[in-house]
Design a protein around this nucleic acid. Sequence first.
DNA 1: AAGACGAAAGTGGTTGA
DNA 2: TCAACAACTTTCGTCTT
Length: 311
Amino acid sequence: MVKKNRQKIEYVKKCPECNSKNLKKDYYKAEIVCGDCGLVVQENLIDQGPEWRAFDNEQKQKRARTGPPIKYTLHDKGLSTTFSWKNIDAYGRPVPTKNRAQIYRLRKWQRRTQIANASERSLAIGFAELSRISSAMSLTRSIREQAGMLYRKAAKKNLIRGRSAKTVVTAAIYVACRLNNMPRTLEEISAASGVERKEIGRTYRFISRELGLKIVPTSPMDYVPRFCSKLKLSQDVKTKTIEILKEGADKELLSGRGPTGVAAAVIYIATVLCNERKTQKKIAAVAGVTEVTIRNRYKEIVDKLDISLEL
DNA sequence: AAGACGAAAGTGGTTGA
DNA sequence: TCAACAACTTTCGTCTT
């Protein structure tokens, strides 16, 4: 359902003369006229609606020349100016009656300029959150944009209802990373965004299903460059790792295993082979798995590929 | 003392009846 | 809806460097 963007003016409801509710708005003469007795009940009417009409969302977007104010801070936690509903001034004195009407108008416009409507608002919150998280994770521009696009799509499909904007944005980032073959682990994204891991996973599954995204399972290869550089490993190790992974993929012994665990184990093997040994603990920390998993994987791989690791 | 190893029990999510 | 299940984690004792 599309919400009307038009602001409601507080119109007179009944004709004071004949009590008829049959009032007609006349935007050309800018007045409200009683449909029964012809009395002009309100003058100087301002037509706050657009002069065009739109019959669907696309038209609405095309024709709208203005949007909500692009000031993210307005949507930030209490950073924006608000008017108290109480009729007292900054010193706690009651506002004189003659100024009340003015204050009332100020309040009204304050509200109106801040929030165009609920969906625009959550969009703004989302984008503010998006830029925060993506810079914390130093994501590339194209991933940011894709995440933004996904978020917009999700918003259009009303998928955010019942979820927090932040969670949906976070899930969008996760998806965008995967689509660009630059996967991040759920832990990494969780750390940068402050959203719980399982919450991200749930939301990510939900939006990828609803938006009909085809997401291929991640390959351990995608993690290698990032993990290696975090561990400050040489190019030799990286090359070796990729080599082993390719061989492993050919023999189909990597399927069904967590890609991060496999990547970590193969990196471990490569460091040993290249005499650049890192502890399992360090690799495990970078990859977000436990040492035990590394051990299990690398035993399997060494067995199947006949790699001898003399120490 | 730190790292590596492995057994055993626990966890969260998927699957199939 | 529930139990079975696979992958992975946690925990902990033991061995190795």
